Computed example of a mutant assay.
Amino acid sequence: MSETINSEIVCFGGEDWWYHNRAHIDFQLMKRFAAKKKVLYINSIVMQKPKISQGKNFIKKLMRKSESILHGLQKTDEGFYVFSPLSFPLHHIKRAKKVNDLIVGFQTALVCAKLKIEDPLVWVACPAAADIAINMKKSKLVYQRTDKYEEFPNIDSTIILKYDSALKQNADITFYVNEKLYNIEASQCKKAMLIDHGVDFDIFANAEQIIDKPEDMADIPGPIIGFFGNIDEHLFDIPFTEKLITLMPNASFVFIGKTLSNVSNLKNKNNVWMLGQKPYDKIPQYGKCFDVAIMPWKQNKWIEACNPIKLKEYLALGKPVVSTPFPELNKYLTVVYTANTPEDFANCISTAINENDLQKKTFRRKKVQGDTWDQKAKLVLETLQTIEV
């Protein structure tokens, strides 16, 4: 990796290192940048309005963020530093928001001083960090526009769009992973580039070489229809999936990931296994057990602007994939089945189950073999070298 850009990076992340899926693009890139640069990853600043009415879910979210803050500043095994600042979801209250920015900015400055970070490249994946990032001392400003946060539930869309606009106008470059969103918004940016997501190709493609299965998968009868990732009713179409499972009583449906919504109807079905969240490095061992991998997404503006990393991970595993449609999927129609109804989805699964021969697996893997995270990190750094401030 080149040394011609600043050797220090501060990333205001879109996720929290301590409890989110570590496949996300900001984690993946910072891990690779840290091989040659000093990297500080600031865990996500809370954007959603608190809803005490959520009861247990509200308490759970409060506890996990509190635990994240208590980790303090730590260096990860991946080589970069992680810090969770104390912050409050008060973006909709103007005066409180200014105080909150001062608090987060002060904590960030203290940590940067401790790490001797003086003039970093600042990377923003979380729109809520906009004003802090824009106003802090830096060599360059990068905006990662990989999700439409303004479409997320319990968000003040007007405020998030204001942050988004400020970042696009001030960032030296804005990176996109969704071609449709890039085409719509590129003209709003000082400079914009479409980079697409990457994949940890080798660990997924080589997973089937390990003979042993995870213990909690060993006794699940086939065929296995699998999904890994969070089940969130904003993204994952739960009623659609319930009907799909009812249509296929002789198949086993396995879900790997956190359940963030009510899935009691899914859990009550005899052919469903909910195995919970697993460490990222264990996901390929679970995915290799799938006969077909699925993505039953809701049809909304968030999904329209998405580019799920799991699609490339499924293909790197060599698995047949069935999905509800979304724009980025159009690039993969030679290796993915699409269906709009549970009935069509079930028919596609029934066909795909018989397509696990070596030739088809190899064809799917070749579709994503050139999209490794190492290559994406190299492309980003080469691009940053060309930008003059």
Results as ranks from 00 to 15, higher is better:
F227R: 04
T4R: 14
V199F: 00
E8T: 09
V335Q: 10
D172W: 01
T362E: 10
H20L: 04
H20I: 01
C189T: 05
T372Y: 04
I211D: 05
L384Q: 08
I103W: 08
Y41T: 12
E355D: 14
S252F: 03
L181H: 08
L315T: 12
C306I: 08
R145F: 13
D374I: 11
D291V: 05
D232Q: 07
L40S: 06
P284D: 01
N135I: 02
P320K: 04
E242S: 03
A23M: 05
V368D: 01
F83V: 12
F201H: 04
G257S: 03
L102K: 12
T338Q: 12
Y286E: 01
D374N: 15
M47R: 15
I256Y: 02
T334W: 00
K298P: 00
E150V: 04
M47P: 02
V39W: 00
D196A: 07
V142Q: 06
P214M: 10
Q299D: 12
I294Y: 02
A293T: 09
L381R: 06
K116V: 01
I238R: 07
F236G: 10
T241W: 01
I220Y: 02
Y163G: 03
I42F: 01
G222T: 04
P325C: 06
S264N: 15
K269T: 02
E304N: 06
S350F: 00
R364L: 08
L358S: 08
N178G: 03
Y314C: 06
S2K: 13
N265D: 10
I45S: 08
G287L: 14
I353Y: 02
N265L: 09
F255A: 03
K56T: 09
F236Y: 15
Y280M: 06
L121D: 06
K94I: 13
K61V: 06
N271S: 05
F175H: 02
L333N: 10
E67P: 01
V321F: 07
K114Y: 10
N270S: 14
R364K: 11
K269G: 02
R145I: 02
M274S: 00
D172R: 05
F255L: 02
D237A: 11
K162P: 01
I25Y: 05
N265E: 11
S139A: 09
A128C: 09
L275V: 06
W18C: 11
N270C: 02
I387E: 05
L333I: 15
K331E: 13
Q169L: 10
E151L: 08
S44K: 13
L266M: 13
D131T: 13
G226V: 05
K148G: 07
A113K: 15
P50N: 13
E355M: 14
T76G: 01
V111A: 01
L379Y: 10
W18A: 14
Y176R: 09
K137H: 14
T351K: 14
D202V: 12
N250P: 01
L29W: 12
C289A: 06
Q28A: 15
P223M: 08
L181N: 06
E118R: 12
K61C: 00
